[in-house]
Write a protein that binds this DNA or RNA. Structure first.
Length: 881
RNA sequence: GGGCGAUUAGCGCAGUUGGUAGCGCAUCACAUCGACAUUGUGGGGGUCACGUGUUCGAGUCACGUAUCGCCCACCA
């Protein structure tokens, strides 16, 4: 990279810089982790994005935070691995390929399992790297040489191993249970994949005639289409209304089948009519009731949500879609006068998380993981601190779920996924669970596949070579250090990684779970394609630059992990900051010509040099502490403030003066360079490209080839300068107050004036030391000194700084009435503050209880105000006379 | 029904052991190419949702209320 400083553009060119710099890192293989290293390990596994995924703002945030942690720890001396990869995303990917073949007029059944899988692999191989390539645009420093896929050989072997072991331990079982069934996906889904929505529906009251006698029982239902699957009517045993009916038989309207009236505590007397129809094959609660009363379930609906062709269902209804059937049945009931009432009824309806189809509870044969025994350790690990959630409140959320854990339905009636390693004898039907088919001639494999989250749950160790415990990566980088993700997948993913990790490796898969908020649009709504409110990170990067995106995102991260509202314009914040860094760097680099490669000479430091070094030092201290506490957003703020407000606005401005002084020039150059260098290093994890680019241009004596592998700044005792820090505050206040006076009276910058400083005794040497600064920065002609107690001269403005006074003579230049008003306003503020402080000091309890320092502070402030008050009063008197 | 979060300047948000409130944007005034107008300088703007309590002192702690949002459970 040979670039002439003078030729650098005045506006930072993010597009070209970012492309070049990323290439530079890749070519030098700087992202590669070394499993043989002696350094302490730090590792993160990426939450694997779906292969079908397209980069969105959620990724941008998640990946940025992981990259910040990765880059920081790499610089801070850890052997750092950020392992990337993708998820095969069973149903999602299958849906995409099904849509594709639908264009050719085919369904997956037309192709057959084998051909369909071939097509899906083909699609996957074509798209597999897309999203990770997109993440390169985010500057992600993950190690692509270790990229994994949940469906690759290693992960698949791990899945089989885990399945067989769990089965052998009795923690996986197959059985008939009511599951959430999606009629569109034609598969079972787990509880966590079901989302509930409140819908406006109806409650139909249907009359069931008693058999062989006059009378009927009225049942309320929201799902009249299921009446053909009824096996009983249930009432509460203590319900006097119905006590005489228990044990009698009723007739299902329309179909004529006879069913008993039974008593069960499950029924709520006060709800509906107090009588419930029991449909065990199509309702979870009814299933339980049916089991208790030994009633055989009757299936009346197909897997695609149409009505079954079976004797229990009247011929008019057979084959109809469930909602059409509902309409038809209601009509028929009305005709038969069996429908007594229709009421509006609001209720919650389960929806398939993936396709939003209303789920159908369906009794079917599925595979489950027995969770309770696994949950015990997963609860303990969080309770005893082996795993920490940040922010802490998510711990409660996690524990609440774990403590009420239900068995996990892991079988899916799909083809794209890990086929369950169970084999059935073709003749006897005997089942064998094993990693491989024991006898392919005589055994056929279970057709169901596993829930995608089953393989994701193994991710932290399946990617590290497990079950091979001698794998170098497994030994060096497992358990991982930090997991970074959004709260929306705590149950889906985090909880399962914890249970699986503990069960199979005996170790928690990570020590900290860092949970960040979700990205929302400017109105606070979730971003979604259907709402059309998405913001494409790639477009933001094209428009503002990757570092701008990253900095803005980071700055919006709060400690509490609040959701983040974004809009296009918010990224101007980061872009402007990047541009500031660029131009300040350009200026500094231009002024480094002739500098040597030596360290700063401490004996030649000016008060300003010491001040900026001290500030830099405390920023370094804070930054490192903040990372430990996951206060990452705070780090963006302190760097922004330090770099822009301290370094650019003050230090660089003052350095311009020092550079003009031959005796100070060289050392000033060194300080400028040092502070720029260290600032860039601290900024690097957040804004990797621009910092790398500038750092490469700094003349320095080092064989470190990149900022990303340079040492991260740490707090240094020798850079602490408390006195200078305080004295500089006086300088700033003085300059600001002179500027304030100038602007208040509309005195143009071109007009210089004299200033008389009436310094308090202890402050006088400070003023004298920084006289030149005041002159230059406040555009002052001459500075003279006077007695603090001397009467204020007429026709002048006074600024009070600390315990000293700054007098500016304004003869013939200003409106005196305006000045009087200005001073009175100031006085009022001061008097209010003084009164409040004095009131506090009169309070005996305050004086007794408050810490000494605070009391001293308060007294000092009162005294200070008194001096200022007197000065201003005198001044007002002068002006009025 | 249970739980969690939010409520601070016009807008978006910070505020870690309690010591009288800050940042960005917007706004007003001034400055027009001396690193940067993606800029500089200065200013204005808040009874911290409400109530009660603890305390010498509460944005900060406790209890309660209101509004908004989210999660979990779910009665047909």
């Amino acid at each position: 990279m040979t670039i002439k400083i003078e030729d650098l553009p005045t506006v930072y060119d993010a597009q070209n810089t970012e492309r070049e710099i990323y290439k530079f890192w890749e070519e030098n293989e700087l992202f590669k982790a070394d499993a043989k290293s002696q350094k302490e390990p730090y590792s993160i596994v990426i939450p694997p994005p779906n292969v079908t995924g397209v980069l969105h703002m959620g990724h941008a945030l998640d990946e940025t935070l992981q990259d910040i942690l990765t880059r920081y720890h790499r610089m801070a001396g850890y052997e750092t691995l950020w392992l990337p990869g993708t998820d095969h995303a069973g149903l999602a990917t299958q849906n995409v390929v099904e849509k594709q073949i639908a264009k050719e007029g085919l369904t997956r059944h037309d192709l057959g399992r084998e051909k369909f899988l071939e097509r899906t692999w083909q699609w996957t191989n074509e798209h597999r790297s897309t999203i990770l390539d997109q993440m390169k645009r985010l500057g992600a420093s993950f190690d692509r040489s270790r990229e994994r896929f949940t469906f690759d050989k290693g992960c698949s072997d791990a899945v089989k191993e885990v399945f067989v072991r769990l089965y052998e331990k009795g923690l996986i079982y197959k059985g008939a249970y009511i599951v959430n069934w999606c009629p569109r996906c034609m598969s079972a889904i787990s509880d966590v994949e079901t989302e509930y929505e409140t819908e406006q529906g109806h409650m139909w009251e249907i009359s069931y005639h008693l058999k062989g006698e006059v009378g009927a029982i009225i049942v309320a239902t929201t799902r009249p289409e299921t009446i053909f699957g009824d096996v009983a009517i249930a009432v509460n045993p203590s319900d006097k209304k119905y006590s005489e009916l228990i044990g009698k038989t009723v007739v299902i309207p329309l179909s004529g089948r006879e069913i008993p009236i039974i008593a069960d505590e499950y029924v709520d007397k006060s709800f509906g009519t107090g009588a419930v129809k029991i449909t065990p094959a199509h309702d979870p609660n009814d299933y339980e009731v049916g089991k208790r009363h030994n009633l055989q379930p009757i299936w009346i609906m197909n897997e695609d949500g149409t009505m079954k062709d079976c004797p229990e269902v009247p011929w008019e209804i057979r084959g109809m879609d469930r909602y059409e059937a509902r309409k038809k049945i209601v009509e028929m009931l009305q005709e038969k006068q069996a429908l007594l009432r229709i009421r509006d009824h609001e209720h919650n309806v389960g929806k398939c998380q993936r396709c939003n189809t209303t789920i159908e509870p369906l009794l079917s044969e599925q595979w489950f993981v027995k969770m309770e025994p696994l949950a015990k350790e997963a609860i303990a690990a969080v309770k005893d601190g082996r795993i920490k959630f940040v922010p802490e409140r998510w711990e409660k959320n996690y524990l609440g779920w774990m403590e009420n854990i239900r068995d996990w339905c892991i079988s899916r009636q799909i083809w794209w996924g890990h086929q369950i390693p169970a084999y059935y004898h073709k003749v006897t039907g005997e089942m064998v669970v094993a990693k491989e088919n024991p006898d392919p001639e005589n055994y056929v494999q279970e057709t169901d596949c596993l829930d995608t989250w089953f393989s994701s749950g193994l991710w932290p160790f399946s990617t590290m070579g497990w079950p091979n415990l001698d794998s170098e990566d497994f030994k060096k980088f497992y358990p991982t250090t930090t997991l970074v993700t959004g709260f929306d997948i705590i149950f889906f993913w985090v909880a399962r990684m914890i249970t699986m990790g503990l069960e199979f490796t005996g170790k928690a898969p990570f020590s900290t779970v860092y949970i960040h908020g979700l990205i929302r649009d400017e109105k606070g709504q979730k971003m979604s394609k259907s709402k059309g409110n998405t913001i494409d990170p790639v477009q933001i990067i094209d428009k503002y630059g990757c570092d701008a995106l990253r900095f803005t995102m980071t700055s919006l991260c709060t400690y509490g992990g609040q959701d983040i509202k974004i809009s296009d314009e918010r990224f101007e914040y980061g872009r402007n900051f990047a541009n500031k860094i660029w131009n300040a760097s350009r200026f500094v680099l231009m002024n480094l010509q002739g500098v040597d490669d030596k360290e700063i000479d401490f004996s030649k430091l000016t008060i300003v040099d010491k001040w900026i070094l001290d500030k830099l030092n405390s920023v370094a201290k804070e930054f490192n502490e903040n990372i430990k506490n996951f206060r990452i957003g705070e780090n963006a703020h302190i760097l922004y403030d330090f770099f822009w407000n301290s370094y650019c606005d003050w230090y660089v401005e003052i350095a311009k003066i020092q550079l003009a002084d031959e005796s100070l020039k060289l050392n000033t150059q060194r300080v400028l360079r040092y502070v720029l260098d260290m600032s860039l290093r601290m900024l690097h994890p957040i804004m990797p490209h621009i910092t790398e680019q500038v750092w490469q241009l700094i003349p320095k004596n080092t064989d470190v080839r990149a900022i990303m592998v340079s040492e991260f700044p740490q707090f240094k005792e020798e850079l602490v300068f408390p006195t200078e820090r305080e004295e500089m505050e006086l300088v700033f206040e003085t300059i600001k107050s002179v500027r304030n006076v100038r602007q208040s009276f509309n005195i143009p910058m071109s007009v210089k004036f004299d200033v008389e400083i009436r310094a308090e005794k202890s402050e006088k040497p400070v003023f004298e030391a920084i006289e030149a600064l005041i002159q230059r920065l406040a555009k002052v002609e001459n500075i003279t000194y006077g007695e603090l107690e001397a009467p204020s001269p007429k026709k002048s403005a006074t600024a009070v700084v600390s315990a000293s006074k700054i007098i500016i003579r304004l003869e013939n230049l200003i409106d005196f009435n305006a000045e009087i008003a200005r001073q009175k306003k100031k006085l009022e503020k001061l008097v209010n503050e003084k009164n409040s402080l004095a009131g506090r000091m009169k309070n005996e309890k305050f004086v007794q209880n408050a810490p000494k320092e605070l009391i001293e502070q308060t007294n000092a402030r009162i005294e200070e105000i008194s001096i200022q008050e007197k000065t201003i009063n005198d001044l007002i008197a002068e002006l009025e006379s």
